[in-house]
């Protein structure tokens, strides 16, 4: 199936649009209804993280999402251009260390808890988060 690509500027308001597009394509691709909430939340987390990273490092650069149906799986890749060399290691939950802005590393932990399959590729040139879910039924690509 053809890949759908979406780019958006690093504004929080656009994250909702990205969630809606991803959920609509997931449904169209045949992802089970019971998994659509997970798709919506995981894509939202990945895009929120990317927006925050761009706002800190490169607010003028766009964020890119790629959505595709690949061999019976619905795959989403969110790519940003903000430098990210490492991922914070999981630490025991301690209210004292949490803050309003703790969501950066936390978002990836949430994605890992939601998506069926997740890979995170940090690099000095940006982070790429690839996640996928089973797409149970075949949907014709032509209307």
């Amino acid at each position: 199936m053809a890949t759908v690509e979406l780019t958006f500027s690093a504004l929080p308001a656009h994250v909702r649009t990205a969630r809606l597009v991803a959920t609509a394509i997931a449904r169209r691709t045949g992802v089970e209804e019971s998994l659509l909430d997970e798709v919506r939340l995981a894509v939202g987390e990945a895009c929120s993280r990317a927006v925050e990273a761009h706002r800190a490092h490169c607010p003028g650069e766009p964020i890119r999402i790629e959505l595709k149906d690949d061999s019976g799986r619905f795959e989403v890749t969110v790519s940003d251009q903000a430098p990210s060399d490492e991922i914070k290691q999981e630490q025991p939950l301690d209210l004292g260390m949490l803050s309003d802005s703790f969501m950066s590393g936390f978002g990836i932990a949430v994605i890992a808890g939601l998506a069926d399959d997740v890979e995170v590729f940090p690099s000095p040139k940006g982070m790429r988060i690839r996640m996928s879910w089973p797409a149970a039924r075949h949907v014709p690509t032509q209307a």
């Binding site: 987390e45 949490l98 803050s99 309003d100 703790f102 969501m103 936390f106």
Partner: peptide, 18 residues
């Protein structure tokens, strides 16, 4: 809908009231 940003706000509120 609630994401980790919302969780962060709730945790921040909890810290303030505590």
């Amino acid at each position: 809908f609630l994401d980790s940003t919302g969780l962060g706000v709730l945790v921040g509120g909890l810290k303030r009231v505590r």
